[in-house]
Design a protein around this nucleic acid. Structure first.
Length: 563
RNA sequence: CGGGGUGUAGCGCAGUAGGUCAGCGCGCAUGGUUUGGGACCAUGAGGUCGGAGGUUCGAGUCCUCUCACCCCGACCA
């Protein structure tokens, strides 16, 4: 391609909306163009990169035995009503009405459709296992699109689904996909960290995310400084430090005038925070829920949501709290009735807690579970923070940020059961197909690759993702010998299958070099009067300062060995 | 959905006690001089100042409403 004919031009100045590096360079290099919030057009260079990524994905999945299909964007809402996931997605689901007044949605993902599809194709255990995938545009009406391609409302996603006869077979598929994913990221030149992930109220047991570690990442990753443990903060666990164990004292009510927060109460009563009990009120699908946790810890709302198996969870409004007769600042599960209580297991780590008296300005001393109160659910609902102890090895945990570029789940039989995807096993019994799903956001991966590979001058594409391998630069194009030599080298490179972007413009060297750097093409080849004097061309890697003159008559052979 | 911010030429911006305020830089076009890290000179094209109402003799500037976009948070199977 000749730069003079290229649709896009590089921008010297950055559109002011760009905050992150990838957004900045994507716009400035002319790879994408924003059409609306979270909606982008891919321009020639960006589209080439996207297709490179897609093809790497295809090759790796195909070689793992997967089969590519294409499913529709447009999906009947009925299908989503069957699984009730239209509620789980809520407003993020784009819906529309057709001329017959039927409601359709733009698929945010394809579990329903693929299950519906497979249920018609699979009869017997002999048809399994299956790995089916597609590269398709997804639509999600995100509350807040952001950071260029990082979080958008319309995006290309590779989504793969596995179908197996049982959990053991699912695990084989799952491990196969983990391997395929590692290969994909490796070929993309993108180091990723595999972390344990939350699978949501709907998900199954195992779930992992593939994270690119970068400060601009949206997700927080908790990892151990010593062992291999790494998890999304949504899911991360820790060993909670045990509090003091003493013999149980009788409950005693004391006055705590004006003391409401844990800090105030603990200071006032001269007890450590880990001997207090914190109360947090939530509204779970509209019902009031009481969460109890040791005072030195915080509630992880994702864990709480999963414990409650609810779809909507937010802090309860003041009004809700008041109507339930709870006393904010002095609430506890002791003597509480009519409200669901979820407790973090930390309230069993220690004795003789300070808790609210459910009366204004009063607290209780020496509250102990289960002597003094009952709970409906007791499990880990605590937020894990950097500095806590690793659940595996006990060493200290740290926190970093990451971009989620892949997510894999074991779904189990949820979709097959509700949508009726069954097979007959080798004893003729009907069984639900055991499923898994595996997604990669292609545009986001591209953005993450830029976050990870750039300098002050621009992008430094890993060669497998680069839109072109060679940036051919003619300096002094008004001189016939330069133009002729550059033109003929361009034709030679193309004839030899080298992906070459030819800067044939009558621009100054500075402009061309800067554009070459901005676009991040791995190799820059310069033809100028200076190089022609040596019957050669200057070759330079994007990621290196050194250049060298290579003889024109042997250039193509040498270039191939260089890249 | 809460909080904050921005909309003036393709991009970046200036212009707001209401009165030659339709401007600058970059980019673009034409001509010329330049050519190894974003050159220079000259000439030129390009904007219903996001939109709708209103106040006023007069609105880019003030008021009301509205739309779009960005940032923080909430949210993100």
């Amino acid at each position: 391609m000749r730069v003079s004919r290229l649709l896009t031009k590089t921008l010297r100045e950055v559109p002011s909306e760009a905050e992150t590096v990838s957004h900045h360079y994507l716009l400035r290099s002319g790879m994408v163009h924003q059409i609306a919030a979270g909606v982008y057009a891919y321009l020639p260079l960006g589209w080439k990169v996207l297709r490179k990524i897609e093809n790497i994905i295809r090759e790796e999945l195909d070689s793992a035995g997967a089969q590519e299909i294409m499913m529709p964007v447009l999906q009947p809402l009925e299908l989503w009503e069957k699984t009730q996931r239209h509620h789980a997605f809520g407003k993020a689901l784009f819906t529309l009405t057709d001329r017959r007044d039927r409601t359709l949605c733009l698929g945010p993902t394809h579990e329903e459709v693929v299950t519906e599809l497979v249920r018609h194709q699979v009869r017997s255990y002999r048809d399994l296992p299956l790995l089916i995938y597609q590269l398709q545009t997804k639509f999600r009406d995100e509350p807040r699109p952001r950071a260029g391609l990082m979080r958008v409302r319309e995006f290309t996603m590779m989504d793969l689904y596995s179908f197996d006869t049982n959990e053991e077979a699912l695990d084989i598929s799952y491990q196969k996909m983990r391997k395929a994913y590692r290969n994909i990221y490796e070929r993309c030149g993108l180091p990723t960290l595999e972390v344990e992930a939350d699978s949501g109220a709907i998900g199954g047991k195992d779930s992992h995310e593939f994270m690119v570690i970068t400060d601009t990442g949206e997700d927080e990753v908790i990892r151990c400084t010593t062992c291999e443990y790494a998890a999304n903060v949504e899911k991360a666990e820790s060993i909670k430090p045990a509090g003091e164990r003493r013999s149980l004292e009788p409950v005693e009510e004391v006055a705590t005038p004006g003391m409401k927060s844990i800090e105030e109460v603990a200071d006032f009563l001269q007890v450590p925070r880990n001997r207090t009990m914190k109360a947090v009120f939530y509204s779970a699908d509209g019902n009031l829920v009481f969460a109890a946790i040791r005072g030195d810890l915080d509630v992880n709302e994702i864990k709480l949501k999963n414990a409650l198996k609810c779809t909507e969870l937010q802090l309860a409004s003041e009004q809700q709290v008041r109507l339930a007769g709870l006393v904010a600042g002095s609430a506890s599960p002791v003597g509480l009735t009519g409200v669901k209580v979820v407790a973090d297991d930390s309230i069993t780590l220690g004795t003789n807690f300070v808790a609210g008296a459910n009366r204004p300005d009063r607290h209780l001393l020496n509250v102990n579970y289960p002597r003094d109160f009952k709970v409906d659910i007791m499990q880990d609902i605590a937020a894990t923070r950097a500095g806590y102890a690793c659940p595996r090895c006990g060493h200290v945990l740290t926190s970093t940020r990451g971009v989620e570029v892949g997510h894999i789940f074991k779904l189990g039989t949820l979709f097959s059961n509700t949508l009726g995807a069954f097979f007959l096993d080798n004893e003729g019994r009907q069984q639900p197909i055991v499923m898994g799903c595996y997604g990669i956001g292609v545009g986001r991966l591209m953005a993450a690759a830029i976050e990870q590979n750039h300098d002050d001058q621009g992008i430094i594409w890993p060669a497998p993702l680069a839109p072109y391998q060679v940036y051919l630069c003619g300096i002094g194009m008004d001189k016939t010998e330069v133009a002729t030599a550059a033109d003929s080298l361009y034709e030679d490179l193309r004839a030899n299958g080298v992906e070459v972007l030819y800067d044939d413009r009558a621009e100054s060297p500075g402009i061309k070099f800067n554009d070459a750097d901005l676009l991040g093409i791995p190799l820059r080849v310069v033809i100028s009067p200076r190089t022609l004097k040596q019957q050669g061309a200057e070759v330079k890697r994007r990621n290196s300062k050194e250049s060298q003159i290579m003889p024109l008559d042997d250039l193509i052979r040498q270039l191939k060995s260089w890249s």
